[in-house]
Design a protein around this nucleic acid. Structure first.
Lengths: 190, 190, 190, 190
DNA sequence: CATGAATGAGAATTCATTCAT
DNA sequence: CATGAATGAATTCTCATTCAT
């Protein structure tokens, strides 16, 4: 009964993610979330002050877990280029293994629901990446472009690749995926 | 009074784009669209059978205009690599000049509102790009990757770059933009 | 092109009857009536001041034609009992031959749309029947009941019989119909 | 405060009956029903999935109560002819005592809103009457006509009589009513 | 006269949020 | 604390009616 062990807050987040990733924010009433989470509607409001707060909470939760996953094997000991490629690969794999989270993030980041505070928080989560970029710049490994720009190109391409993979239409395997990762690397490397 | 010369259907599309790009689909009631378009609510329904139909119609309208813009200077006479770089540059500039359209497209393509029929139509619009890629492949100019993948990497990076530019935070100019375009080129070129 | 010979007013009435008998008042927009009548919506308003007026006009039209049909072979020369039975039979046959009119009348008479003026008019149409009843009373042919009551019993049973016949479920033929008419006759005859 | 003791579902049905019987289906908005029932609009939808469902629910409710009333004193011990006359009388009295229900039933049964499922249910409610007719046929008490036809003649006349009585114009009393009942009896008896 | 595009009042329905139990 | 019935503001959509052409 893994599901029942989940504390209520987590159960709500899980239900929200599942439902929103396929039905969208506005296609998902609070009542349905409560039902899926096996709790009463009112209970959601003990953990989140409003639906918007819930959405934001879910975003933060996902971003946190993702950052942890993506940097899990990073250490200052490994070379920058290895580190960056590993990072790249991790991001892709995170999304491939968590397609609902990708779907949610894409919806959320392009919606007007996103709070400035949340955006701020998201920036903060990107700090480690920035640090890595900085080290790479110092070693003349990356193109001489603003950090933000490298990040944007990088993440835009990565997410797009993950989406293509998940769409299933392409039908390409791990090998192609690696080729894609290499291509992205070509984009940012000097 | 340019606005009043617009036929009503166009006025509705214009109003919808403006409002949705900043408030989102669900933050924008039909009544507000009507108001902005200076017509009655009922009139919208003479041109679009439902709100969903309106959204889809707007998407198709935008995609059509964008495709026209992006391929406007393309000809079979120019070299493939020049053509591709021009294309790249055009896409970026289209979005920079039409930020609301970028915002709308991003919302729409990640929402559950998107119809299969519309997705189909969108594929169709990508045909010229595919043809160009094909020519490039034959000349061994591009990496040996599936078309879909090249397209995904390409568009993901381009859109991401345009968004960064528009966010204004980067504050970089045309020169940097060109550097970005070159980086994207590095990603797909052999 | 019989349809096109019809003057517009009649075309509107015909279209209204057809549509309302199957879709009901509120399931039938004015625009649909116009379409079926092959005229513009606005034109309806040249002949009828409002939808309500149209409905009332249709009712009066139907009642008039029905009364004419039902009394078509009546004359003071034939005996009262023959005349009454003939009348009875005529009413049934009118409805059987004009099912849409029956459907419309039943809807209309039970709806709150019916005007006092129209009800008045309807009474007036029943005058010949009353006269016939009076003659019958004087000859001690009918039960000693108020005219209104005889009329109510009579018309209630007749309409009910016609509806049953038209429902088709009973599947009975002309012979049974005559037996039904006889039964109704038993109800009012002394 | 009898009204306030009513559970909400019943309060809604009561309000609906009152309003519809005088204003018709389409003259009665959900908001008005809610107001009359002293509840919020949304609450109606906890008990009925739509306005149509509400109307159907009301019809079933009324038919159930009416059937109970009409057969309340029926038993297999009493003679068939007494039973039938009692039934006849009960139907009339039910409608006289519940004029709004008569009005509603008449509107509903002649409207295109009626569902096949509901019609089915209504047939089912007529079973006891059919059984009684059957017994009567076996004893050669009724005319040799199909059950459906006897039922149609019977109910058509009864309802018509009740309506006349309620219209108040006739101004006849219980005695006349009984005479009417006798007349109807003459119609179906052998 | 005929037309049908334009209108907006009005209706059904949904759903985030509250609060009595 | 947890619940879910109750609420009503807000939204989409329809359609009778008008009036410029």
């Amino acid at each position: 009964m893994k599901e029942e062990i989940l504390d209520k807050r987590s159960a709500v987040l899980k239900a929200t993610l599942e439902l929103i990733s396929e039905q969208g924010f506005h296609g998902t009433p609070m009542s349905q979330i409560a039902q899926r989470a096996n709790i009463g509607v009112g209970t959601i409001y003990r953990y989140f002050s409003s639906k918007e707060d819930l959405i934001n909470g879910l975003y933060i939760d996902i971003k946190t877990r993702m950052t942890r996953y993506v940097f899990r094997d990073y250490s200052e000991n490994i070379s920058v280029s290895v580190g960056l490629k590993q990072l790249l690969s991790n991001v892709i794999h995170y999304f491939i293994e968590n397609p609902m989270e990708l779907s949610f993030i894409e919806q959320y980041e392009n919606s007007p629901l996103i709070t400035d505070a949340t955006r701020e928080m998201s920036m903060h989560a990107a700090e480690p990446l920035k640090a890595l970029f900085k080290r790479a710049m110092e070693q003349n490994i990356l193109k001489e472009l603003p950090f933000d720009m490298l990040g944007a190109l990088f993440s835009g391409a990565v997410i797009s690749l993950a989406k293509l993979y998940l769409s299933g239409t392409a039908g390409f395997d791990e090998i192609y995926l690696n080729a894609g990762v290499d291509a992205i690397w070509d984009m940012i490397k000097r």
